[in-house]
Design a protein around this nucleic acid. Sequence first.
DNA 1: GTCTATACTCTGATAGAC
DNA 2: GTCTATCAGAGTATAGAC
Lengths: 205, 205
Amino acid sequence: MKKRRPTKVIDQLDREIVLTSAARLFKIQGYERTTVKEIADACNMLPGSLHYRYKTKEAILIDLMRLGLEQVSVELIKACVGESNPAEQLRKGINAHLKVLVTGSDMVYVLLFEWRALQGDARKEMIQLRDRYEALWVGLLKPLAQKGIIHKDVDLDLLRLIGLGALNWVATWFTEEGRYTLEDIGNFVWRIIKQAVVVPGETDI
Amino acid sequence: MKKRRPTKVIDQLDREIVLTSAARLFKIQGYERTTVKEIADACNMLPGSLHYRYKTKEAILIDLMRLGLEQVSVELIKACVGESNPAEQLRKGINAHLKVLVTGSDMVYVLLFEWRALQGDARKEMIQLRDRYEALWVGLLKPLAQKGIIHKDVDLDLLRLIGLGALNWVATWFTEEGRYTLEDIGNFVWRIIKQAVVVPGETDI
DNA sequence: GTCTATACTCTGATAGAC
DNA sequence: GTCTATCAGAGTATAGAC
């Protein structure tokens, strides 16, 4: 009996290669301007082989976004787990989101900036996925409010929406060669939030 | 001698009709998914007539962005002129930016979200235009720092970049039917900024 | 599973009569 | 300035041999 790698493992590898290549192209050129031939070229496949994995170009985008959401969720959780101070959790979460969005996987960028390319049901599904990610942030912010670290009268939903917006937009102007490092930016956002909504002296609980 | 409207006036009217129609389509469908035929239909023209005004689809986008930038600049200036309190100028500026972006001209939305559709020189020109708009914000923030209303150690460039990012991202999730009005959102952002960077008691100068 | 070849559609742009 | 007709090119998806 011949020994061989389980089919599943090979498929998973292919999936990552295809989606990583596609994400880079989608980020640079945009989804619409990128052709399936370019994607195939980028992962050393012929268009026919790519079509064997994904029947349509849209299917690639959808699967890519699912993986991107998984990646950013994992990074956010990793950054907070093992940190007992909830204020520090928030600070680390901000830095993690920035890092994975800007210097990490292109899939997260595409997830956030190309959802308009999807229509109908697919768009709805992606919005639901995005909501699920944002629910992780609710889970970070709620304990801070309950413990009195964040002022009682701060609207947590608005804080999340505005805060994530501020972070997401960074991806539109950040460059490695710019004046600011990602840490500079993360620290700045953290300081703003801390000074605006955190009760003084409560960050060390 | 026949009396007739000066040619310039007619051209200017046509320009606004074309660009307004195009902006609405670009905002809903995105630039790439919108066809020149759709634009022509939307302004009751035939493709040939549209082509007489704009030789290429890209030329429409570029002119649209120029006009969008002009509009948002005018609204920002209008909101601040006649307000002597610099802190109040900032508050009104925030609301003006939000309003024109979200409920005002679709051109401003397109200006901010479709710059990736441009390539090469055209993209560089638009980035320069965006920088010119941001310079207006520098003009709002600098006096606040010089008068000691904003803490000396706040990086004004980061404050501008992060603040505008927070505002711009609102356009991706705001709906008229949602829980928050534009005023709610503007007030929230203003409060965050005020509590984070404004020296207490200095807002009434 | 992979590769070649191609069908079919759409679109931006143009030519030229009026 | 406007309209009809059309070209040339690009791009997605598919069929079918291997």
